[in-house]
Design a binder for these strands. Sequence first.
DNA 1: AGTGGACTATACAACGTTGCAGTACTTACG
DNA 2: CGTAAGTACTGCAACGTTGTATAGTCCACT
Lengths: 336, 336
Amino acid sequence: MPPGLKDVAARAGVSIKTVSNVVNGYVHVAPTTRARVQAAIEALGYVPNMAARQLRSGRSGVIALAVPELQSPYFAEIAGLIVQAAERRSWTVLIDQTDGLAERERDLVEGLRRHAIDGLIFSPLALAGEELALRDGTPMVLLGERVWHGPADHVAIDNTAAAADATRHLTALGRRRIAAIGVQDKPSAVTAHQRLAGYRTALAEAGLTPDPALEMPAEGFHRADGAAAMARLLDEGAPPDAVFCFNDLLALGALRTLLSRGVSVPGDIAVIGFDDIEDGRFSTPTLSTVAPDAPRIAQLAVDLLAERLGDGSAATGSPRELRVDHRLLPRESTGA
Amino acid sequence: MPPGLKDVAARAGVSIKTVSNVVNGYVHVAPTTRARVQAAIEALGYVPNMAARQLRSGRSGVIALAVPELQSPYFAEIAGLIVQAAERRSWTVLIDQTDGLAERERDLVEGLRRHAIDGLIFSPLALAGEELALRDGTPMVLLGERVWHGPADHVAIDNTAAAADATRHLTALGRRRIAAIGVQDKPSAVTAHQRLAGYRTALAEAGLTPDPALEMPAEGFHRADGAAAMARLLDEGAPPDAVFCFNDLLALGALRTLLSRGVSVPGDIAVIGFDDIEDGRFSTPTLSTVAPDAPRIAQLAVDLLAERLGDGSAATGSPRELRVDHRLLPRESTGA
DNA sequence: AGTGGACTATACAACGTTGCAGTACTTACG
DNA sequence: CGTAAGTACTGCAACGTTGTATAGTCCACT
């Protein structure tokens, strides 16, 4: 049985409460007493019992981070950064994998973990809009691209603008038949919609007519989906001279198809992705991409949550939307 | 304030304990009572308070998983699989990132989280041997390649044999100058040592003399390290005709260097990696590798932990070492 | 008719911690 | 010198849950 305040108190010859005061850094404790208690703590190897603390205070010191999947390098990176940011506030991060399942996401929102966590940082895939309204008062910060005025704080890049930047990079190279890979129908697939919108905007700016045959759907955002979409693009009629993939994994899959068929990149077809994952910096050719400022996203998400947790009433203030910068990174796959 | 047993009891007109009994599925509750209580639970949206539960039972239902880094696809995959396996036991997994820092690892082992977690699945990088002995009774399962008879249960593939298999694949192709990338000096870098040993064994079997110039060190196990090591290999004297990289990331980095210099793979140099991460299945050329049975590793780790948690005394039985299978996956980078 | 057992429900204590109220002693000040 | 303010410490209650003990009811079998 691990020692408690009781045991430390007995050993130091003081009351339980005094030990508690020492542990919590209460000021009015005589130096000699404090030293005696500290010694007892050391000797017994006392560690505060978090469960009891939480039961009293209602705070667990744990925040949850819910992402669709950790396998995806982008989310893995975000997760790592958020853990770091949370550590600076000595919070523990509980990582939840939703696999993009609506059911799992709903569980989170409806607060099945309610008592265990102080707040939630959430990157929703299946849920959108009002479905995200939290029933209990647990503060939540949304990550990624939510549309207008959701029910909670929200950190994201300007997705549409970033997609337009990527596409503009291709039109600026003089490409005319520019395909998009990653289109999704589901109304909840906000990311895909926004990137498609940005793509179309940039095409229009360049005076190009959108060709439905060039807007390739993808079930998921993985390499295999990108490879398959690219293959269809090559097999069906006139191939494009450039492709904007809605994320880097799709782009790497597309690259694989192109190279294995002997298509020159960027000679015949230029390719650009989205996210700036590490893989793209070492692929052959290296992958042009749009890089969201991930460290800043992580920092802001944690800061926002901290603000809501700071004052007791989580309801203070209306939801805020924070924009984070993005950068275009031209690499070999578009001829850098 | 969220409702507690007390509130439900009041609404249903029964005692607190009866509600507790209903919640915990105790058999001897009259159907009508049970229904009334269930209705009250629904109406109030009651959710059990985990902190209080843990305080009573000493069990949190949370296990920790500590890995060097989530960015690494191999660990991300393992993490995902462990979360799945734990979910089947309705455990929550707290993922800790050690960044391979000895200090962080020591904190874990010394049980700073002691009260918060029921058990620990740990993939140590910096710590080895007796330093890993847990002071308190928290059950621990070690992941990855620890040497003989550590202080805790341990799940791993036969690292040396797997490395030998990979190297043998290269000698079987008739390659004679086979390099290794990923050598590390630190005594705690057990993985690197074992893979080097396997490599040397296979060379010896093929009647080849090990050439120190072909054993390339790598600071980390990342793409950049692999790319740099490969560059040095090409620049210093006679280049090899095959390379065994100690993991897939190193191999992908090496691939990048080779292709950007116009070296043919596998024509001039064959490349094989280790881990079977998704990236290697979509690189150009696709990457030959050795695949550990990751799902089984995850399942066994969780099972082992469950066993230690089952009976109250965690000390039952001496540490066990479980071997998991691995498979050689020849792909394009060695001429498949 | 009496005894044992299964069934249903309850009361109480305890898990380890902290907020609040309170006690005893010291110092400061008019 | 008396009172107020500050310092050092203590005791009790409460957070929400569950294990143990207990009490009453009903039925079945001697």
